[in-house]
Amino acid sequence: MNPVYYLYLAALLFTIGAAGVLIRRNAIVVFMCIELMLNACNLAFVTFSRMHGNLDGQIIAFFTMVVAAAEVVVGLAIIVSIFRTRHSASVDDASLMKL
C-alpha cells in the first residue's frame, strides 16, 4: 500500500482538528481537537519514518505522546477549575486576559 495515503489521512485529520479548535466553543471539544491534531502529526511522523527508513520519526512520536499526556493532565485540570468558578466550559467566556 502506498504510504502517501497515510499522509493524506494525516492532513485530513489535522485539518479537522484545526477547524474544530477554531470553530467549537466547548473547551472539552477544543481539547479533543487538539489531541486530534497531535495524533495527525504522529501519524505523519511515523509515515515519514517508514518512507525514509530511519527511526527518528517513530521516536518523536513517542515524545509527542508523552507531551500530550502531560498536556491532558494540566489542560483538564484548568478546564475543570474554570468550570467550577464560571459554571461554563465555553472558551469565549474566559476572555478576561485582554487590555
Binding site: 484545526a18 479548535v21 477554531l22 466553543r25 477544543v30 472558551v91 469565549d92 474566559a94 476572555s95 478576561l96 486576559m97 485582554k98 487590555l99
Partner: peptide
C-alpha cells in the same frame, strides 16, 4: 497593536495557525 489582544482563545489560535 493593543487591539489585537482580544482575550478570545480562538482568535489567538487563528493567529497561530
Amino acid at each position: 497593536l493593543r487591539r489585537l489582544q482580544t482575550g478570545f482563545v480562538r482568535s489567538y489560535a487563528v493567529q497561530m495557525l
